[in-house]
Each structure stands twice: as C-alpha cells, then as structure tokens.
Design a protein around this nucleic acid. Structure first.
Ligand SMILES: [Zn+2]
Length: 276
DNA sequence: CGTGCCGGGTC
DNA sequence: GACCCGGCACG
C-alpha cells in the first residue's frame, strides 16, 4: 500500500554521471526508508539539456531520501548534514553508474556482442542503509537473488575513523542487471514491506557475471582529510569558498530558460535548489 | 571566460 | 519584503 511509493520516475543523462547516457531512472524507498532502489537503463544521449535537468532531479530526491541522510548520532548540525548528504548522494550516483558502465563494457567484450543499440536493458541498484549496532558489525547477508537477475556488483562501505563526512552507518549497494525475463520483472524490496517495482525487460538470454568493488575506498580517496590550514575560525565547518562543484540552476537549465531557475539564482544569490 | 554569488542598490 | 546588478573570486 503506502509502504513504498516511487519518489521519482525520470530520465537522466551524463549530468551527474560519467559515460553513456542513462535513460529512465525510477527510484523507490521502502517503509523504514532504509533502502532505496534505482532502476535505470542506458542509451545514447539525445537531449542533453533535458537529461541534465533530470539528473539534477535524481540527485535532489536521492539526497533528500533518508537513506542518504546522516543518522542523528553525532548531529553535526543542519547545514553540515545537508552538505554531506548531497555530496554523498552525488558520489553514490556517479559511482553506481560508472561501475555499471564498466560492467556493461566488460560484458560486451566477453560476449562479443555490440550492445550499443540495446537500450532496453535494465539495471537496478539497491542502496541499503543499516545503522550500526554497538558491537556486531556484521550486516544482513547479501540481497536474495530473484529469478531473472544476476548480480553485477556487491558494494559495501563501512565507516572508518577517517571518514568524517561519510554517514556513520553501514552501506550496502547491490546493483543488478536484469535480463532473461520476457515480461514484467518483479524487483523485491525489503522483506517486510510488500513493495514491488515492475519493468519490461526484452527477451534475451545471456550468462550472468559477477564482480564486487568497495565503495568505501573511493569515497575516502575523494574526501581526504580536510586540509585544515591556518584558519582563524574555530567553528567545525569553516571551509572557505571552495566553489562547490555542483550544477546550479544556471548550468542546468541554461540562460535561455532563466524562468525555470530558483528565485535565488534568478537574483544572483546563493542557489537554494542545489545547495552545496 | 563562464559561473556562482556577495554586497549594495531601487521600488 | 521582491527584484536587479556591479563586481569579484573562483575554476
Ligand atoms: Zn538555483
């Protein structure tokens, strides 16, 4: 019922990603809001402008989802939390897409099939968030396999004392390539919530391939310890104007569609739709 | 040079 | 308040 409802169904391009365009991204969140599912497929980008808009929307809804929010453990303040979640969401998206891209490429090489024309292949990524219990750090086992699916990657990220800005929770990203099924495929979500997402997958038979990567490594690399150079302020988050690398309304919508910018951007103020 | 946006306007 | 813009700091 209302246990799970799609938060966004959209198309996105290379905006928040790198590599080939991404068409059709659907996102759902379960009742406990601990699990998030991205369903997407690839294709060659056509309308780059539209794609970038949608990519920004995916980012927004993903970063707003409690799956990516920082659990109220250390409570670093509202501003910092928002910053971290947006940044982490951006990182998750690009990581998932690039990883799926490389998997897709590798599969094409191995199978010898040119799949550039195949834009109906659907992939999906489960993003699980389990708050860490004191002591036992072992999370529930990998997501159960469903007929018609093969594991493309199983990613995990565990918090380390070095990762200050990373959410202090257990992360499990499970991306899968859907094939073999001819008609609507059911994607099961959390065991408790009876939420399902259906997608039409082309009839096709290929052999599955597995690989696993660690998302924690890259996250830590990209968010190395803050330089913390001679800074007069003793406040926690006092990084200066480092021009946060985020697509703002101007770059997303373009100057010609200025009427779609948020009011802050229209008034040359700090963007409030895509904050850093 | 394009972009983000602070400070400082006007109505 | 809403709205506009010069000018500067980034990359
Ligand atoms: Zn804006």
């Amino acid at each position: 019922s209302a246990a799970c409802r799609p938060e966004a169904t959209l198309r996105t391009g290379e905006g928040a990603t790198s590599g080939p365009g991404v068409a059709g991204v659907a996102m759902t969140t379960n009742a406990q809001r601990r699990l998030c599912v991205l369903l997407f497929s690839f294709r060659s980008p056509e309308s780059v402008e539209m794609d970038e808009i949608m990519a920004a929307m995916v980012l927004t809804s993903l970063s707003c989802s409690p799956v990516v929010q920082n659990p109220p453990q250390t409570d670093p303040g509202p501003g910092q939390t928002a910053f971290c979640s947006v940044k982490f969401a951006r990182f998750l998206l690009s990581f998932i897409f690039t990883m799926t891209c490389s998997y897709k490429k590798k599969f094409e090489v191995l199978s010898g099939s040119d799949q550039t024309q195949r834009e109906e292949d659907f992939y999906y990524a489960k993003i699980c968030c389990e708050t860490i219990e004191a002591g036992s750090g072992s999370a529930a086992g990998p997501a159960q396999q469903t007929p018609g699916q093969a594991s493309a990657a199983l990613l995990t990220h565990r918090p380390s004392p070095l990762s200050q800005s990373a959410p202090s929770s257990f992360w499990q990203i499970h991306t899968e390539h859907l094939y073999q099924a001819c008609s609507p495929v059911q994607v099961s979500m959390a065991p408790r919530s009876p939420c399902t997402v259906s997608a039409v997958v082309p009839p096709q038979m290929v052999k599955p391939r597995c690989r696993s990567v660690s998302v924690g490594e890259q996250w830590l690399q990209q968010n190395r310890l803050q330089p913390m150079s001679a800074s007069p302020s003793r406040n926690h988050c006092s990084f200066r104007k480092g021009r946060g690398e985020a697509k703002k309304c101007r770059k997303v919508y373009g100057v010609e569609r200025k009427d779609q910018w948020c009011t802050a951007c229209r008034w040359k103020k700090a963007c409030q739709r895509f904050p850093d």
